[in-house]
Simulated assay, not measured.
Amino acid sequence: MPASRDSRQIDRSVTSFFNKWYKSMIELLEPWRWRDAKHSYAQAGEDLIVDFVVRAMQIDEVTYVDIGAHHPIQFSNTYLFYKRGFQGVLVEPDPELMASIRRVRPRDTCIEAGVGVQSATEARFFVMSTRTLNTFSEEEANRYEAMGTQRIEKVLPIPMVTLDQILAERFRDKAPTLVSIDVEGLDFEVLSTLDLGKRRPPIICVETLQYSETREEIKDTRIAQLMSDNDYFAYGDTYINTIFVDRVRWKSSGK
């Protein structure tokens, strides 16, 4: 015998009540489900490696210098720490990208300039069709274009500062917790200007892989040698970037 209209209404009411109850329980339990989850904003999890090192070294206050910041969140080695309430210095020469950085990360100090390897106060900046490949290296810009899928969209005159200038003005005699360098083709040169005898960041993250569209990438072994010569060791490597840690500070933090 077919169900009465009243019984169908009761069934719908019970189903509706159960669905609402189930949804409310899921919303209640969701934070517990994800309470141990870790989200990375970096290109290949570099920020999570840095975060682990920071905790292992018992560093309570995180500061940073992000050279070649590019984007306030995406592919950022420092946004995880900004989100936790820390702040630092972001250096980005592309005016359009810097506008976005200033809007999203107002607590950070933003420097719209390039980091130079000499005393020049201005340099030519090659803006590529893929903005992550922007570079001050004309050789790199031409190499990207020769691959066939990239092009130089424009060349801008950009003011230059030195890494030591930034550290002296923003950190005085101290060093930031993290220095992150991603400057497409000039990473070794910029890193070489850092006077590690004067200021020693506990953690330095550097792009050590040369970009290629044919999977024929080359690791810049000069960077690892430079860091080893200055008593830093490679704590982690994501193939794209290498995270170096001050050996003396690492050993002393475990005592």
Results as ranks from 00 to 15, higher is better:
86 F>P: 00
24 S>M: 06
104 V>K: 06
12 R>D: 12
41 Y>W: 12
161 V>M: 10
108 D>W: 00
79 Y>G: 02
247 R>S: 15
96 E>F: 12
228 S>F: 08
255 K>R: 11
119 S>E: 14
174 K>H: 13
141 A>L: 01
201 P>L: 05
125 F>M: 08
216 E>K: 11
192 S>E: 13
34 W>I: 06
227 M>L: 07
167 L>I: 02
58 Q>I: 00
35 R>S: 10
112 E>L: 05
233 F>S: 05
71 H>W: 01
7 S>M: 13
156 L>Y: 10
251 K>C: 10
215 R>Y: 08
129 S>F: 02
131 R>N: 14
72 P>Y: 01
121 T>F: 00
252 S>A: 15
99 A>T: 09
104 V>I: 11
11 D>V: 10
25 M>D: 09
85 G>L: 06
155 V>Y: 07
66 D>F: 08
151 R>H: 13
73 I>L: 08
1 M>G: 07
32 W>I: 07
63 T>A: 03
77 N>V: 00
89 V>F: 08
187 D>T: 02
38 K>G: 06
66 D>K: 15
93 P>D: 04
224 A>Y: 14
71 H>T: 03
16 S>C: 09
218 I>E: 13
252 S>I: 14
200 R>I: 02
74 Q>L: 10
18 F>C: 11
225 Q>F: 03
11 D>G: 12
164 D>M: 10
142 N>L: 14
220 D>M: 04
215 R>N: 12
39 H>G: 02
60 D>S: 14
116 G>D: 15
45 G>D: 04
207 E>H: 04
69 A>E: 05
203 I>Y: 08
165 Q>N: 11
196 L>G: 03
61 E>V: 13
161 V>F: 05
213 E>Y: 10
112 E>W: 03
41 Y>Q: 04
117 V>Q: 07
192 S>W: 02
228 S>M: 07
53 V>N: 06
115 V>F: 15
216 E>N: 12
52 F>W: 13
159 P>S: 12
209 L>M: 11
123 A>N: 05
198 K>S: 07
120 A>T: 12
123 A>W: 00
58 Q>H: 14
149 T>G: 03
34 W>L: 11
162 T>I: 00
242 T>K: 09
233 F>H: 06
197 G>P: 10
152 I>L: 04
160 M>N: 07
111 I>D: 02
146 A>Q: 13
122 E>W: 09
57 M>K: 03
43 Q>S: 04
15 T>A: 15
158 I>N: 10
201 P>T: 04
